[in-house]
């Protein structure tokens, strides 16, 4: 299903015995048989124990090939892999910050938080209105405990500016403790980490890196942390923002 220009939501029927993924985990997908590597995608939803959802933005050959897969075709996936987000404590509100396709990494978490009626603020940013993926976060079923706000760089929808500026704007208005969850481009992640640290709030980010094995064997997907290189696939993809060494030079990401 097309959900925005060049972004697609896939529903995969998985076998009954498929293990329940945790928010933050991902699967390694064979997108095209001729590619040497699988492509990692976050679990963007899991329904009835049988339906695994992936939200994919076309970036290159693999994602293009996957987007063009025929309805009803069989997909080879490995996973769920990696660690998971720490659920917010009872008294903490959850603040989700998603930039662009970063919505994919936080959507499953948002769904769980909504089901648990946890106090949640989801911030979704993109360049412009047509690209926004905020509608992929679950619909609030009434009640004021779960809110979605948007930001666009060009001001065509929601807050006019970066989603990180929206975060700064909102953070002061939060009542009580909060825990931040972020997924998006490296520059955004770096800025969220800075804001979290300045406000003394715990913050977890989902980090992307090119992957080969996906299981911690090849050491190909490392992320620099205060404690040295850690694998995005096994030690991550979720990292405590305070542990990360985020250099401006790496903002373009992998």
């Amino acid at each position: 299903m097309t959900v925005a220009r060049d972004s697609y939501l896939f529903t995969l029927d998985v076998p009954r015995e498929y293990p329940e993924p945790q928010p933050g985990q991902f699967v390694q997908v064979t997108t095209l048989a001729e590619l040497v590597l699988r492509r990692p995608f976050s679990v963007a939803g899991f329904r009835d124990g049988r339906h695994l959802e992936l939200l994919v933005e076309v970036r290159g050959k693999g994602t293009r090939g996957f987007a063009e897969a025929e309805y009803g075709s069989t997909v080879d996936i490995l996973g769920p892999l990696g660690n998971a987000f720490t659920p917010p404590a009872e008294a903490e509100s959850a603040v989700l910050v998603a930039g662009g396709i970063g919505v994919a990494g936080l959507r499953y978490l948002a769904e769980k938080l909504l089901v648990e009626a946890h106090r949640t603020l989801a911030l979704v940013g993109d360049r412009t209105r047509d690209a926004l993926l905020d509608h992929l976060f679950p619909e609030p079923a009434g009640g004021g405990r779960y809110r979605v706000m948007t930001a666009t760089d060009d001001g065509t929808a929601g807050f006019h500016g970066a989603v990180t500026s929206l975060l700064e704007d909102q953070i002061g208005r939060l009542e009580g403790n909060a825990r931040i969850y972020a997924c998006g481009p490296r520059a955004m992640v770096r800025e969220v980490a800075r804001i979290a640290s300045a406000s003394g709030l715990p913050c977890e980010v989902l980090m992307e890196e090119i992957m080969a094995c996906g299981v911690g064997a090849c050491r190909g997907c490392v992320i620099e942390t205060e404690g040295g290189y850690r694998t995005a696939c096994k030690d991550g993809p979720v990292f405590d923002a305070a542990d990360l060494v985020l250099a401006e030079a790496d903002d373009d990401g992998p």
């Binding site: 040497v36 590597l37 050491r219 190909g220 490392v222 992320i223 620099e224 040295g228 290189y229 992998p254």
Partner: peptide
């Protein structure tokens, strides 16, 4: 050995490039 700085992998039409750096 710490290994090389990332990115350490790059897929090409011909195969896979890796620069793990013997971590």
């Amino acid at each position: 050995r710490e290994g090389n700085r990332p990115p350490r992998l790059c897929e090409t039409e011909a195969g896979l490039l890796n620069a793990i750096g013997l971590e």
